[in-house]
Design a protein around this nucleic acid. Structure first.
Lengths: 331, 331
DNA sequence: ATGAAAGCGCTAACAA
DNA sequence: TTGTTAGCGCTTTCAT
């Protein structure tokens, strides 16, 4: 374990003052070229690494951003995280990542950890059970911007970045309507989730304008397994749909297992359309046609908003990413 | 933006010294219960947050761990990260995450960032092109332990934590041999990857002991798409395998698309066995039988080793996770 | 062009 | 039981 290289050590070795070393290292114009190169060479040689803790303590400027999600290993969040990390690194920021495990208490702990580590700003997708926002308010009062993304609070006084859920769900509905499907099975997630509500409302409203031309069957499922059973059930005991809409990748997975079990031919016997982040639909043959709402896009948008906040922009707004139809062969 | 709450502020408000406040907050036995509660109450009221930068600067003890991977959004790394984060939080550590994008220069930058942020230790899965290890050596000389995981350097003088790749691949081969398959198509990844070499060698050696009872067809593919084409090719133009082995999820995905295209019945017409982290094989019906090498296990093992290093254990070792057969219905 | 000195917030040895 | 003080490594103002 070698002794740490500090400005003092360099200044001693060169018999110049600490401040001169500090300035030389930052190319301060006051310092003579000669001294500058001398200092830099030695710093290089000794593998000098500035101490971020000392810098932060002195300047009160942190180059670390906090990112809190319910779970990292999730096809959606990991793409978000990946994108934010990439942008952050470009800008000289580092990312501190924390998981709440969908538990409000852990989430609160994580917020505290962010504060302890004096992060410059926080990205957060809140848990399903988050109801107390005083902690968040305190963070913002301390001048630390928070960007809520994906799972966001209902209040309007926060910066939020969301998927274009409504428009995307409506678009999926339109695709189905345009194909003149007779019986459409639409599968949504848990009713309580705000994301379900939004997608549900936008999707069904398109069919309402159709008044009754299409037979719309709606169900809510809580997991892939439930989607699997639900689909089997419809095909075995109820009306045979000629189109299935899946609100999420999780649901699509269950539906596709049922499709494989029943040996249903896609798209000849059944059309499938999904909303997805983009990976799962490509696993099948033919690939599934889906409306893409991208975690990468959301990450980029969130990061841009964060930078703008960090630069002093105080406008509170709710931003939305775009969406895109990705054609597979399933409709 | 309210003014920061510091020890000094509390001490002023209470007209006692800073050190008394500091001690009271840490339940130092010297401090009277009265003072202790008084201080704690005020700290609570003011929402006091200790400054990690100041603490670190003073004590030279950082509670942050660095974690560098080629890419975050990857079914394997995200489970590793998830597990490490969970363990870290339990122990009071936070995680700083960096991506190298499989670029050695970016990787080097990331190492520097870890140093700048004075991380207590580093977990890293190196890029395919990492050849210069002086940077790593310097980090270790500075007393910062490095745990290499998954993609590890060939040298023996590092702490490494790896999958039980050889044993797992051998186990997969045994499963096939025991079923008396006639023609086995075994698909491996890029030849240069150390992971490919290990799996390849272990897998084929099992068949060698069989001397020729089984017709073993071997191919190397670089992507899901290549695996897809390769599989189609074998079934359309070459010998029809009655079993396929997939070295990775990526390959399995391509093979399964081909299976769907050709309408091959699993397991009646074809057996499939894979090596996987555990998610992809469950997407199909029947689910694919696989040898599981878990990112979570690897994360836990890596973290344990890190803690041991941090506590002064200097034993350099290469650790391996276990593996597990997960029965689907594909063989 | 360079140096001296103060101070960021905290801890810990020493004093009282 | 509490206070005083030095100092972690750095930046920055003010002097020289």
């Amino acid at each position: 374990m070698e002794s740490k290289v500090t400005l003092k050590k360099i200044s001693d070795l060169l018999s110049i003052s600490i401040s001169t070393v500090s300035r030389a290292l930052k190319d301060h114009p006051d310092i003579s070229l000669e001294t500058r190169t001398k200092v830099k060479e030695l710093a290089e040689m000794l593998d000098y690494q500035p101490n971020a803790y000392a810098i932060n303590l002195r300047t009160n400027v942190s180059k670390v951003l906090g990112l809190i999600v319910p779970a990292i290993s999730n096809n959606f969040y990991d793409s978000f995280i990946s994108e934010v990390e990439k942008e952050a690194r470009k800008t000289g920021y580092s990312l501190m990542i924390l998981q709440s495990n969908d538990d409000p208490a852990t989430e609160a702990d994580n917020i505290r950890l962010c504060r302890l580590n004096r992060v410059a700003g926080i990205f957060i997708s809140i848990t399903a059970g988050t109801t107390d926002f005083t902690l968040f308010n305190r963070v913002e009062e301390a001048g630390i911007p928070i960007i809520f993304f994906d799972k966001v609070p209902p209040q309007t006084n926060y910066n939020k970045v969301c998927m274009a859920d409504k428009q995307a769900a409506a678009k999926a509905a339109e695709l189905i309507v345009n194909r003149h499907k007779k019986t459409v099975l639409a599968l949504f997630g848990k009713n309580e989730m705000s994301i379900t509500k939004e997608r549900y409302q936008a999707f069904t409203s398109i069919f309402e304008t159709q008044n009754g031309k299409t037979n719309l069957l709606i169900d809510h499922v809580e997991s892939s397994a439930a989607a699997f059973n639900c689909t089997l059930n419809y095909f075995n005991n109820k009306q045979m749909p000629d189109a299935v809409f899946c609100m999420s990748d999780e649901i699509l997975i269950g539906v596709m297992k049922a499709v494989q079990t029943l040996h249903i031919k896609i798209p000849q016997q059944l059309s499938i359309i999904a909303m997805s982040n983009g990976f799962i639909p490509t696993l099948y043959e033919p690939e599934i046609t889906y409306v893409k709402t991208s975690g990468y896009d959301l990450g980029r948008l969130s990061f841009t908003k964060m930078m703008s906040c960090l630069q002093g922009n105080n406008t509170i707004e709710e931003l939305h990413t775009g969406y895109e139809i990705v054609e597979g062969g399933s409709i």
